[in-house]
Design a protein around this nucleic acid. Structure first.
Lengths: 244, 244
DNA sequence: TCAAAAGTGTTTTAAGTACACCCATGA
DNA sequence: TCATGGGTGTACTTAAAACACTTTTGA
């Protein structure tokens, strides 16, 4: 298949990962660096989302999946198309001008933004010198309109994780109850009562206790659980609770 | 400003309205008709969403607003960009071929889909011969991928109306409690207990009883209420209830 | 006076919230 | 044996669900 780019349309990927050690919700960003050939002056030095133009034969989902896979090697991760960004000036900020000049961008590009939830442990960045994880609370300087895109993705994630069990996409297959709680805390920035949270979660049929405990911890090892998507989908029924 | 169309990108508008008499949630659709010049055979005879290519100087929101205004004369209505549709074959169905040939469409068009909530009473269709309201439960034959777009818009609306007070966008400024209930029933296709619903709604501070009752009804006239967006926004606080 | 829709209360049940101490483990 | 994080139970409060009859009005 011939690869014909569509220069008017791109996908951008907001990649969320969770560092279970530092209890930090992180974003995978790409370093963008450009210096003047003549003076060696630094023209651009910031970070951007990973993204690319769509190909003519691809669906939008396929484009996004391809872009993610090129960066992380991962397929079959949770992804959500959450918004299109098409301000005619979105690539025309002063800070982006040297970059645009250098890359010969089409300046009217509408981007379809996706966010992905990946298990950090599955991502190997050794071969990707330019890619780096940043806590969502400590973002670096960002190119284009990518700060806006990230913030909207994050807002969508906050809402979504309240009503769908997507949080388990960010955790290892085997996790402890406290790890789930810490992750909710990291995403939502709220305090959660441990006893009430445990009770609630443990009573869910799709949270399954394993015959295993943590290993290699220096304190009392915690019970491990897994999430069963099968059971969730069988059990779960929409409720039509009007909550305005 | 010169109007330069971008042939790769369009907006499509799913316009929801509510007929308070027939208690029907409706969609505004455009008749699409084409017959062969030689044989007079009917080549295309179905309905589509209103939509158009974006202009180079416009934001996506502006494009959608413009398209809606051209059809209905309305601005300042509730709108939500809910999804982009970009399947490379979305305009290539057999049923659409004569139309595409006739209009010289670019066949790789990604469309950014919006839905709008309008007060049916505000829309005057007399000047728009081709536009017609259809109950969401009795949709006609639809062109392109517009059925898919409509169904996804409707799903999004169902979810959204559970957590945000957007239902009032579909009602007159002055409404009765039972009208709100009937509208929820029409959207969600569920039965709602009248006593519980009334109590719940009347206790909201942003649902304000007026010193007015229905006029021109042949039975006991009901109390009229209004929705105060101001009070809603002041009172409302996000809850972080995890409900998975 | 009748037909039709408006309007009203109470009990039960489920779920969220608040709160403080003991336990098991590895170092 | 101690420091650390894991794990537990109860009382209270809030809100949803279930359920049937009376009232008001215009015709």
């Amino acid at each position: 298949m011939e690869l014909i780019k569509n220069l008017n349309i791109s996908v951008d990927c907001v990649v969320f990962g969770y560092d279970i050690i530092s209890k930090s919700l992180n974003l995978l960003l790409i370093h963008r660096y450009l210096e003047s050939k003549s003076t060696k002056e630094v023209l651009v030095n910031d970070y951007v989302l990973t993204g690319y133009h769509i190909y003519e034969h691809e669906t939008l989902d396929q484009s996004a999946t391809r872009v993610l896979e090129e960066l992380t090697g991962l397929s079959n991760t949770y992804k959500k198309q959450f918004k299109a960004f098409g301000d005619p000036n979105r690539l025309k900020d002063e800070k982006d001008a040297p970059w645009i000049d250098n890359e010969a961008f089409n300046q009217r590009t509408v981007t379809i933004a996706y966010y992905f939830l990946v298990k950090t442990e599955d991502v190997d960045l050794n071969s990707k010198q330019k890619a780096k994880w940043f806590p969502v609370s400590e973002l670096p300087k960002l190119g284009f309109d990518h700060k806006k895109i990230i913030l909207e993705a994050y807002e969508d994630l906050k809402l979504k994780c309240l009503t769908e069990p997507i949080i388990f996409e960010l955790l290892p297959d085997k996790f402890t109850i406290n790890e789930v709680q810490d992750l909710y805390k990291s995403i939502l920035n709220v305090e959660i009562d441990n006893r009430n949270f445990r009770r609630k979660l443990i009573h869910k049929k799709y949270i399954i206790p394993l015959d295993e405990k943590q290993v290699g911890v220096s304190k009392k090892p915690a019970q491990l659980y897994m999430f069963s998507k099968d059971i969730y989908e069988k059990m779960h029924q929409k409720n039509y609770l009007i909550n305005i």
